[in-house]
Design a protein around this nucleic acid. Sequence first.
DNA 1: GTAATAGTGTCTATTAGACATTATCCC
DNA 2: GGGATAATGTCTAATAGACACTATTAC
Lengths: 232, 232
Amino acid sequence: MTVDVVILTITDEQLSVLLIRRGGAPYQNHWALPGGFKHPDETLDQAARRELREEAGIDAPAHLAQLQAYGDPGRDQRTNVVSIAYLAVVRDLAAPAPGGDATEAKVFPVSQSLAARVRLAFDHKRILKDAVDRVGAELEHSGLATAFVGPTFTLSELRSVYETVWGTPLDAANFRRSLISSDARFVESTGQTAPPGPEGGRPPELFRSTPQWNTGSPVKRSRKKGDDDPGR
Amino acid sequence: MTVDVVILTITDEQLSVLLIRRGGAPYQNHWALPGGFKHPDETLDQAARRELREEAGIDAPAHLAQLQAYGDPGRDQRTNVVSIAYLAVVRDLAAPAPGGDATEAKVFPVSQSLAARVRLAFDHKRILKDAVDRVGAELEHSGLATAFVGPTFTLSELRSVYETVWGTPLDAANFRRSLISSDARFVESTGQTAPPGPEGGRPPELFRSTPQWNTGSPVKRSRKKGDDDPGR
DNA sequence: GTAATAGTGTCTATTAGACATTATCCC
DNA sequence: GGGATAATGTCTAATAGACACTATTAC
């Protein structure tokens, strides 16, 4: 019984994942998801948090949720082990700190990690793929997007999360309306504004996520002409 | 590593679950979900199917999907074990056939099984609760409803599934349009009609589910006045 | 002033939801 | 015929989506 954690963040307008490399063992040339054995006296969530802390140096992910269990025989050459995959979403991942088993930790763009030529350890590529699909689907029905940004954020920042994950441009005006109006109510204005960027522009309003951010369906993914559905 | 299966069906207009009783062990006075240890040479899905067959006598569930893993320490008095919960949906559950460890198998209405006075073994009540929530949510976004009915079905039958699971009456006319029109396309007419019931009435059209029944969002759950949201 | 970004207003096509009407069976 | 169930038609309010316009900053 192991727990593997898919740690996602956005760097340079790209959805990215933290991968580690371990010494020894098979797959020592492969990158892998951080993870390890669950201790008998901890919950699954606690095990995921511990692995986050030990192997990636992350203490407080903005979002942590169980994804799925993987138990195909042969998914791990060494032992027959079932793994519970977790999804963690964090905001800053500038300097990943490897620890525990991990000798190296690095952030890769998801698109690159899923490329055919790249080899990840075990069935971690499949897990990563599933995690990314899940995030895309969940953005449509929850406030998960706010986990990618800071405690306060502008709507442009939040919209950028959607656009990055979905790979689709969104209309800024309609995006704003979707979030503000209706019963969604998963962001609220702080009343403050942020300073504009170096390019100038009107100072944006600062928002925070509301406690009930995990209900409702804030934004709809547009499915229009020529939209090659990547599946769910 | 065990696999537990929540087997849901609809009997007498009620969402119902199959529970079993085992001899010996603790909790021998409690009803429990069918399940057991995963074998090293099988996948999780195969383990779930095997338990379905061995303990409940079910060979081909209309729907089988993984739900979630449960691993709180203390959830099982005897051993510290992580359990992967599965959801199975079947159509007929008239004569449940206990086998293997199970000495008794019976179908209970979900509402009754979740009542405060009823005690289920381990954390099975929580698992059942989670499963029911999931089904309710998934009806809104997939064709899962068709798993509750036969290979061909009338729209009244299908609508009844939604109404039973959600506990809300749906407008027959709008229901039909939701399914037929738009891009959902998760049911199609067989061109045939079924004989009307003993009360008479126009003979209903027979439908079948399409292969891509697990995409799209066929019907929306109406959230109107005084709708006490049960949460997701 | 221009360029850039944020936010508002408005129009149209689509859709949900309510409800009336027609169709086809049983008795 | 009357009663029951299935299917179709129609209207209204709400919403998605497109896009023009105003507001506030940097330069």
